[in-house]
Design a protein around this nucleic acid. Structure first.
Ligand SMILES: [Mn+2]
Ligand SMILES: [Mn+2]
Ligand SMILES: [Mn+2]
Ligand SMILES: [Mn+2]
Lengths: 228, 228
DNA sequence: TATTAAATTTAGATTAGCCTAAAATAAATT
DNA sequence: AATTTATTTTAGGCTAATCTAAATTTAATA
């Protein structure tokens, strides 16, 4: 049988984090292939590791039907995500890195193992609620409050809101948003959809108007303004 | 032959750092046994790794006669030491960790791979010259200025100076110093040696007098006051 | 200088995390 | 329902970093 995992290694941590994120789009169970694609390794490798994670009770695994996280697995994943996002805030707020630069470095920092460090960093940063990409930061008990956001591509014509998150974190995409003043906190109004390519005209901060592709608006999350 | 090392792994970084520090007391070449003791691994393992480090030109190695660092090896070691000490300053100054707590966490942070991060951290901290233990911090070019300090146990009776470093970093020792007000910056005067056990009476900040064992005074570094 | 002791190296084995190729299973298509 | 395609698993292998046991070399001692 499989060797029991005591302390999760860097590799195991990355598996659990990837499973956590993939469960968003595959709630019934994360497939071997999507995990392999995310981690840039071969499916055969994933199958083996999932077996180990299952016997260490980090995941529940049904052969051929994917993996889901146990409570233990979820706790572990959220602890890593907490660290990742806190370090992103640190890099952005204190070291003045731009929002397209923080993720790569946080990928390393998230594995630093010290609860005391994490909690003091949290305090030092003033207990931030979200990271530079608008993603919520779990508290020290692993509690995460997911804000109610919708993709800009889901907004009705005439709807207004504030850019509050993104669902794509590549430097290229984030730099594109930056260049077009589509950063967090920006006020947007959806003016008109173009059915043939699902693109749309957007008004920015009640002033400038831009035309954005579906590829872009589907990855921008907004908080809709209450209409009264 | 040995596989060539491209990017130094965490393991390789720890070997190079250990060799750098051990060269202080073994300048002719670091022995297999002292490296094994420092890294808490077996001598046979060290022999094998030293071979790999030598073929990657990190060290010069004479079988049976120990290893010394090449320029490449020294550069790599100093980059890690720079990161280690900058993170210790961060933990101490910004997150308010005590000087006996910072080392362990810095052991992990020193392996984070980003020159940009290191240099921005340096700036954020105001380009500190020394870490919380008084050890000098190499600059971004790897230049390190070693201050002229002597062990308190080398001071003549009547000599005065300021505590400016330590040569032992265990939490137990650092906590002992803290408790006895023997922290960095403390003014000390050597009053009298006791030959039979090499202990000494020390005056602290021109006031309180304490009796310290040889074990303690040999690990305290002082900057002697100029006498005119 | 010969012998013993200590340090070091060599030989062979193990584990985690990866791989490729082949086999098995599930899903999709005719 | 039978066949083809896609996904997943199994089997066997590799590398870095470790280990133990045995052999070799250097250093210390008689
Ligand atoms: Mn990120
Ligand atoms: Mn983020
Ligand atoms: Mn240290
Ligand atoms: Mn230090």
């Amino acid at each position: 049988m499989y060797k029991v995992i005591f302390m999760p290694s860097l590799t195991v941590e990355n598996y659990l984090k990837a499973i956590y994120h993939l469960l968003e789009s595959e709630p019934e169970g994360v497939s071997t292939n999507s995990l392999a694609a995310t981690l840039k390794i071969k499916p055969a490798t994933v199958t083996d590791m999932i077996g180990k994670l299952a016997s260490a009770r980090f995941v529940k695994y049904e052969k051929y039907y994917g993996a889901t996280l146990t409570d233990k697995g979820k706790r572990t994943a959220l602890a890593i995500i907490r660290k990742h996002r806190l370090w992103e805030v640190f890099l952005s707020e204190k070291l003045k890195f731009s929002w397209d630069e923080v993720h790569e470095i946080a990928e390393q920092l998230e594995h630093i193992d010290s609860i005391e460090l994490t909690d003091r960093l949290d305090m030092f940063l003033g207990y931030p609620k979200t990271d530079p990409h608008g993603d919520p930061i779990p508290d020290k008990n692993g509690k995460i409050t997911v804000p109610e956001l919708i993709p800009l591509s889901f907004a009705k014509e005439g709807a207004e809101g504030m850019i509050s998150g993104v669902t794509e974190h590549s430097p290229a995409f984030l730099q594109y948003l930056e260049k077009n003043n589509l950063t967090l906190g920006t006020e947007v109004m959806l003016l008109e959809y173009y059915e043939y390519d699902l693109s749309a005209d957007i008004r920015i901060n009640k002033k400038r108007q831009v035309h954005l592709s579906h590829e872009v608006i589907k990855h921008i999350l907004i908080k809709l303004h209450d209409k009264h």
